[in-house]
Amino acid sequence: MNNTNSVSQQEREAMIQENIAEIGMMIGFLIATDALPKTDLDLSSTDISQKVISWAKEFEDTHQGSDYDFYHTITELGKPDGYLDAIDNFTDLKLREAGWLTEEYILDTARFWNSRT
């Protein structure tokens, strides 16, 4: 869903900044817990930063608005409990697609893609 007309440009930019912060915190946590082995993958901070910005914009373009009904309408993200949970699930998918996650993390039953019914 793309509701680019439903928010002002200033609101959109603020939401993108929020997305960047949330994605960045998640990636930092995953690096710290070795679920994203940055060194083994030979990823530079620049590589990661560029992806974070790109993904933050993509999320906002696709699932715009903090009042969006994430739980009922975005099946590819599981059934997230709101905006930040949707960003986290989106980030998980992007990291998996990029091949940046360990197999152990991907196969963990806590991942929303492993608990789909």
Rank of each mutant, 00 (worst) to 15 (best):
N5S: 15
A35F: 03
S45K: 04
G28S: 14
N89H: 08
E11I: 12
N89P: 00
S66Y: 01
F70N: 02
L95Y: 10
M26P: 03
V52H: 01
F70Y: 15
F90S: 03
G28D: 15
S8Y: 05
S44A: 00
S115M: 13
K51H: 06
R96S: 04
I31T: 05
V52A: 01
T102Q: 10
D69I: 04
T73N: 12
S6K: 13
W100F: 02
E58A: 11
I23Q: 05
A35K: 04
E13H: 04
L84Q: 09
I31A: 05
T73P: 02
G65Q: 01
E60V: 01
L84F: 10
F70H: 02
L36R: 06
Y105K: 09
E60T: 06
P80K: 05
S49T: 05
F70M: 04
I53H: 09
K51Y: 03
I53F: 03
S49W: 00
K79T: 04
L101Y: 06
S45M: 08
D42C: 07
P80L: 02
E76P: 01
S45E: 13
T117I: 14
L107G: 08
S115V: 10
E18S: 13
F90L: 02
S49I: 00
L107Y: 10
S66K: 06
H63G: 00
W55E: 07
W100L: 01
D42P: 01
M26I: 07
Y68M: 10
S115Q: 14
Y83H: 13
D92A: 11
S54L: 07
I27F: 05
D88S: 11
A35W: 02
E104K: 10
A110G: 05
A86G: 00
L43Q: 03
N3L: 15
M26H: 11
Q50W: 04
T117E: 14
E22H: 09
V7A: 14
N3W: 15
I53V: 10
A110N: 13
E18D: 14
N89R: 06
L77T: 06
E18K: 09
D108T: 07
I74T: 14
P80F: 03
D47S: 03
D67Y: 03
Y71I: 01
T75N: 13
